[in-house]
Design a binder for these strands. Structure first.
Length: 562
RNA sequence: GCCUGCAUAGUUAAAUGGAUAUAACAACCCCCUCCUAAGGGGUAGUUACAGGUUCGAUUCCUGUUGCGGGUACCA
């Protein structure tokens, strides 16, 4: 039962407004004691030429209580609705229990394909905490769109092409050793990469040499290609083990290299459409009429650049997936780049440019400045996960409640805690990484939510019978707050997708857990009997389902005990 | 220089133009003979500055200050 729609429908009957306009106006009151839904009467002040409080009072008088609404009360310029708690409780709880794992999902996106490009680490570079931002946000968004019924394709646009491979080949040929690299691929490749940059500062000729090797690679030179393939394979093997830990998988690992042989056609098309202009020896698309700097597509040596690959990739995706939405979860510093390539697509005559969205996110920094792969200033994601899990395990063993599967449970909590930290705030916020904050499991954190779930499940296990809603029961404030929170899952998912902001779901589930904890602390369950026990058990079970479903969207798993 | 983003309790952050600006952490106080204290309750504390639009501004507009990002042959 969608009570908002229901009330809007009834209000439409007694005001001159349309139902849809009313839906847009209806809001949640700031506190629970002000009712369940509020209609602000300010918009009607002009048409009625009366003060909003007068209008509210008149509407309150003409709104007769019904099956769902206990009373409508005027407070200032607002008309506050109080629902019948028992009716709402029955409706919500039975809905949750009957839908189970599907509770909160939707068919909004049926037959529409949404592409989410995320994670996209660079080959031969370490997977550090910075990469987790894109990985966590992208994965959560993919889950969220999937819950809304969209056909989601998860794309890992690997950084497996570009001048850095010229540098890497150059560095390998000078200082590389096959055996050491096989043993610890990414670390060793990073070492020679860093050395390249240090030496290039003294000897700029190295840069030219690197550009030369990249040119060879683009031309399909055998030796260069063999090295590249090897770098890619050993790197991907390492990445995949991290993804496994995070519970993340992709539908495609087509990286930049995949588009290598598809760019020529796009360049030809740009030429045919008279969009390419020569400037300072390079080929650009002029975007001054869009108020944007020109977009460089061919370097003066004729080689392609990332913009060329991104334009090509977008066109390939349109053709291959016929996407409804093409989402790029890429750092905020690249905002201009995406504006430019979308503008180029538009100039080429492709309206799908309007369905491409850059979902940017903030920077992960250290307290003493930015992470830097070249400078060797990195915090590896594996190290963070390891530490988080280790700390969790220590805590579990200390508590002594869990006796079996301690490692498995620690892994779920420890990994969840890290994911949660990256999904807690609006994605455009920077994150200053600190071990202390990352591993603080008090208050708003994954363990807080997982703990609530585990407590709920513990009660359900002990109860032995499962909760069935009795014919009639009373609903306390704490119970009602929990029921209302449960009711909001689908709205939170939709809101989250609309904004491309997973933190909406994160805040939702945190609040749900908070409501559950208050309920837990004020209402005994197992000591009760009869209808009270049955009702509370059913509510407890519903709460567990809600928490599990919402956490799942964030890529965070639940544990049965902790 | 130009473009762009941000500025909210001591800290990190919420808030479709709406009611008394909301949480967490840190501080202080209380609650385990009671379903897991990784919990709950309580106290104290906030919209950078100056204007403007509006019945109403943390939110929209202008300016100021402070901080960040971008600004073609890296991605």
């Amino acid at each position: 039962m969608n009570l908002k729609e229901y009330v809007a429908g009834r209000l439409a009957g007694i005001t001159p407004l349309e139902k849809n306009d009313i839906l847009g106006l209806l809001a949640l009151p700031p506190t629970d004691d002000m009712g369940d839904l509020a209609f602000p009467c300010f918009a009607l002040a002009k048409t009625f030429r009366k003060a909003p409080p007068m209008i509210a009072a008149e509407l309150a008088a003409s709104y007769a209580p019904d099956e769902w609404v206990e009373k409508a009360e005027a407070v200032g310029g607002y008309l506050n609705f109080y629902f019948k708690r028992e009716a709402v409780a029955k409706s919500v709880i039975s809905d949750v229990l009957s839908k189970g794992k599907a509770y909160g999902t939707d068919t909004l996106g049926e037959n529409k394909t949404v592409l989410v490009e995320y994670s996209s680490p660079n080959i031969a570079k370490p997977f550090h905490v910075g990469h987790l931002y894109s990985t966590a946000v992208g994965n959560a968004l993919a889950n969220i769109y999937e819950a809304l019924g969209y056909n989601v394709q998860r794309l890992n646009h690997l950084g497996d092409w570009g001048t850095q491979f010229g540098k890497l080949i150059c560095a390998y040929k000078r200082w590389g050793d096959k055996e050491t690299i096989e043993k610890d691929p990414i670390n060793e490749l990073l070492k020679i990469y860093v050395r390249f940059h240090n030496e290039a500062e003294e000897d700029p000729a190295l840069e030219d040499e690197a550009r030369h090797y990249f040119k060879l690679l683009e031309e399909g030179d055998e030796e260069a290609t063999a090295l590249w393939t090897w770098f890619r394979e050993v790197s991907l093997r390492e990445f995949k083990s991290t993804y496994d830990r995070l519970g993340i998988a992709f539908d495609s690992y087509n990286g930049e290299a995949f588009y290598g042989d598809k760019m020529a056609a796009v360049v030809d098309e740009l030429k045919e459409k008279d969009l390419l202009v020569e400037s300072e020896g390079a080929q650009i698309v002029d975007l001054s009429d869009e108020g944007l700097p020109p977009c460089l597509l061919l370097k003066s040596d004729g080689a392609t650049i990332y913009a060329t690959r991104d334009v090509t990739a977008a066109l390939y995706r349109k053709q291959h997936y016929d996407f409804y939405k093409n989402i790029y979860v890429v750092g905020l510093p690249q905002s201009l780049h995406f504006k430019q390539i979308f503008a180029v697509l538009k100039k080429m005559g492709y309206d799908c440019a309007d369905d491409c969205v850059h979902v940017g996110f903030g920077t992960v920094k250290l307290s003493d400045g930015k992470l830097s792969t070249r400078g060797g200033k990195v915090v590896l994601l594996e190290d963070v996960l390891k530490e988080s899990v280790a700390r969790t395990e220590a805590k579990i063993r200390e508590a002594g409640i869990v006796t079996e599967d301690v490692e498995e449970i620690s892994e779920k909590i420890g990994v969840g805690a890290v994911l949660y930290a990256f999904l807690h705030n609006s994605r455009e916020k920077d994150i200053v990484f600190s071990w202390e904050d990352m591993l603080d499991f008090e208050g708003e954190s994954a363990p807080y939510v997982q703990y609530s779930y585990a407590r709920g499940k513990s009660i359900l296990r002990r109860a032995e019978e499962s909760g069935k809603l009795p014919e009639s029961f009373c609903v306390t404030d704490e119970e009602y707050a929990l029921i209302k929170a449960l009711d909001g899952l689908n709205a939170a998912i939709r809101d989250s997708a609309e904004k491309n902001e997973p933190f909406v779901v994160n805040r939702y589930v945190t609040n749900l857990a908070r409501c559950f904890n208050k309920f837990y602390n004020t209402s005994s369950i197992l000591k009760e009997e009869g209808d009270v026990r049955a009702f509370r058990l059913a509510l407890c079970e519903a709460a567990c389902i809600g928490i599990q479903n919402a956490l799942g969207l964030l890529g965070i798993q639940t544990v049965e005990q902790m």
